[in-house]
Amino acid sequence: MDINKQYSAQTWPDHPETATLEGKNKFVGFWLFLGGETVLFATLFATYLALKDKGPSGMEITASQLFELPLVFIMTMLLLTSSLTSVYAMFHMRSYNFRAMQAWMAVTVLLGAAFLGFEIYEFNHYVHEFGFTYGHSAFSSAFYTLVGTHGLHVAIGLGWFILLMIRNAKRGLNLYNASKFYTISLYWHFIDVVWVFIFTVVYLMGVVG
């Protein structure tokens, strides 16, 4: 493919992310990768459910005492919104509007960073208010590992977004990097979906009991 080829909104393909063989490969490969990631999270969820509320004999902390829904609800809203803004970014990518795409990606990053900030606050809160450290119990290990693995995915996603925005700031859109933008947004949606499950399985079901 010719990276220097100039496009206009008219000549830009409808699906730039799969317009080249490399793009197609990346598209299929990344979907498959997310399939593997799904199994990974499913395993973490299963372990969490097996170890929920389990600890040394006499452990007093349970999920229903620990979690506070308002905070988690804000986090959920932040991440859901960021998923939406990344859709806007992809919309502008497809209509060959580089600046608008970068701008929406920046918004996505800000929302994601806010989410991560809340999560760090949340973990900190559990440790200091409840003494609920990583080594506190099987429950705490399973909780932090599940939610923390998701948080790590968010952090990687943010780094990836930022790297792409910087590297392409001067290059603009072309068929070489269109698939890169597409995969990160796919990744971001995946992270969002996983969070919906965490919200339901860990927090909602946890508070209910």
Binding site: L51, P56, G135
Partner: peptide, 17 residues
């Protein structure tokens, strides 16, 4: 994590399995 970073997934006395 259990062996090196203080987790308790398999530590039975800590609720692990």
């Amino acid at each position: 994590l259990d062996r090196m970073f203080f987790a308790n997934f398999f530590a039975v006395e800590m609720g692990g399995n």
